[in-house]
Amino acid sequence: MKYPKEVVLTNCTEVSIRPLQPEDEGRLRAFYEEVPEIDRWYMRFDVRDPEVIRAWARGGQDVFSIVAECGDRIIAHARLHTHRYGCYHHQGRLRIIVLPDFRQKRLGSWMLLDLIRYAMEKGLREVRADFVVGVEDAAIESARKLDFFKKALLEDFVIGPDGALHDLLIMTKQLHKDWGDF
């Protein structure tokens, strides 16, 4: 995979996509400070914890991160979490966060496409993404357009900040490995 990748959003904004580097730590922290509290609530990790950000910025064998930049500002962060061993080693889990001003402009789709290509290069068989129904519906639609299908719906599985329960939709996309798949 060659970086940076230049993309143009639907509002003509030019954006560059590249892997996250250790020196991005401060800017990644600033990025998550801009992410609305309601979005942070539904994340699997506490992104206000400097150790979480530091670990992502440093990278590692089990997580691959890319960021989208507009000028010097990080406006989106996408991760692919993988396992080297065990029953999940064939699978990667995706997570994409885009700042509100840059949503609905296809940036999430570009980052999703990039991580899918990376997963294919890594030889994964499947990628998974979890979405909170009613909160992340636009992301669900983007995933559908890239051939993600519903794997399971966990009803009333996650809880909102107001105490309301939401369904969690698990979607997966099969990555073709053998010529016979086609």
Partner: peptide
């Protein structure tokens, strides 16, 4: 376009 590729004849995956 991957659907135009001779994957069968080359015994290759699309990737």
């Amino acid at each position: 376009y991957s659907w135009t590729w001779d994957l069968d004849g080359n015994r290759l995956s699309a990737q």
